[in-house]
Write a protein that binds this DNA or RNA. Structure first.
Lengths: 229, 229
DNA sequence: CAAGGTCGTCACGGATTTGTCACGATTTTG
DNA sequence: CAAAATCGTGACAAATCCGTGACGACCTTG
């Protein structure tokens, strides 16, 4: 299973750091910002699996962020958990009306928040993740046989698909041409090593999007690796 | 994998003994002390993989121990888990600011603490064991074929990479040019001894960062060695 | 069967890497 | 101090490695 990606919007540095650390320790990939507009930007650029939203932030208010997340096409269905001060009943009501999925009142224990998030993830996962791989801005759906990059569906052939999948199962790891042949083509294939180069090239061309860097890294005299973003 | 080594700083004898017993049962190597200064001494003498630090100890306070651990060269990056009393919010914030990595509030179950420590070890391990090498401020990821120094990724060629890796596998050890040729180039290579000089030079240039000293030491009439900065 | 797509191979060219040498700087030795 | 030994450094040609376009064989699909 791929690591869930969270977006935390929190302007108390101490709390933000604490939560960031704890969620990382739990295996989440978490991005933190104190600013509402910044949060909206990031959420649209790289849609998270869940948003943790402090209701009392400076600048664009939490309620506004929530509303605009819901209105955005890409972010309309991302679960939102709001962090609210004790007794802010109005916020609570308005938050849930605006589309938040859950809430937790401060002060809360990180453990409880983590449990809450985990529960939501379990609820959401089966719908969106069967056999999903995610590395950087690349997403590969093994069952649907589909690869997307930045909301854009890519067109790749069978071999390119298997090659990319293998890379995505081991991000940042360098494989020699021989290892790639074994893993992607099978151990008893009798294929020239240099053929791998050609498929790497075809893969590169297939996942090419202008404005995005090439995630396939060539390691001279060693092999190739797939790097996040 | 080597057994993780912990240092427990706890002045409640009952709790100390309990934790010592439990962690030993889990296969950890744990050293216990009730005194902050004693803890600092031991930590510097024989750097542990993780420190469990009670925030309320007699003598040097937990916060001071934490700060001095972070300031120490050898112990700067050792994870610290603080044990704090419930509701000591100030301690929590200051602790995390000072550089603690996680905390747990008393009373806690040993099981939970063990789980917490295990999570941190999983996070830290790849940097310690696995295919990661670390000498001074240099870090070499053999799997990803990547070398970093002070958060900065370095650019080195194949031979420089192999040479550096060999050095990092045996820090502070002096190798003759002949030994280096055998180890890095292979025993049946027919290469001039002086060629090693050139590659040493290229390695030096490749890992050069301004403000940082050269970790490659020349030992006249003997060879070269890699020293931790 | 025709058309389109995919696959493995090859050859060319450019870029990087590598081994060697020569010369000067530095240290050791006599 | 002079000579010898040792090391650092810049340059360079050869070797290696990789990107790329092209091509024929093969397979699928209609």
């Amino acid at each position: 299973m791929t690591t869930p990606r969270l977006l935390l919007v929190e302007d108390d540095p101490a709390l933000a750091e604490l939560l960031e650390f704890r969620f990382r320790a739990e295996g989440y990939n978490i991005s933190v910002t104190a600013d509402g507009d910044e949060a909206l930007l990031r959420a649209n650029e790289d849609v998270p699996d869940l948003v943790l939203l402090d209701w009392m932030i400076e600048g664009t208010s939490g309620i506004e962020v929530c509303r605009r997340l819901r209105r955005g096409k890409a972010t309309a269905h991302v679960p939102i958990v709001m962090l609210t001060a004790r007794g802010a009943e109005d916020d609570l009501i308005r938050g849930l009306e605006t589309g938040a999925d859950d809430y937790i009142t401060k002060p809360f224990s990180p453990r409880e928040l983590i449990a809450r998030v985990a529960a939501i993830m379990r609820r959401i996962r089966p719908a969106l993740a069967g056999e999903m791989l995610s590395v950087g801005d690349l997403t590969l759906d093994a069952v649907a046989h589909r690869v997307t990059r930045r909301e854009q569906t890519l067109q790749l052939g069978p071999t390119e698909f298997r090659l990319l999948r293998f890379f995505m199962e081991h991000p940042s790891r360098v494989f020699s041409r021989g290892q790639l042949l074994d893993a992607v083509w099978g151990t008893e294939s009798d294929i020239e090593l240099r053929t791998v180069d050609v498929h790497i090239r075809r893969l590169r061309k297939a996942i090419e999007i202008d404005g995005a860097p090439d995630p396939v890294r060539t390691v001279r005299s060693a092999g190739y690796a797939l790097e996040p973003v």
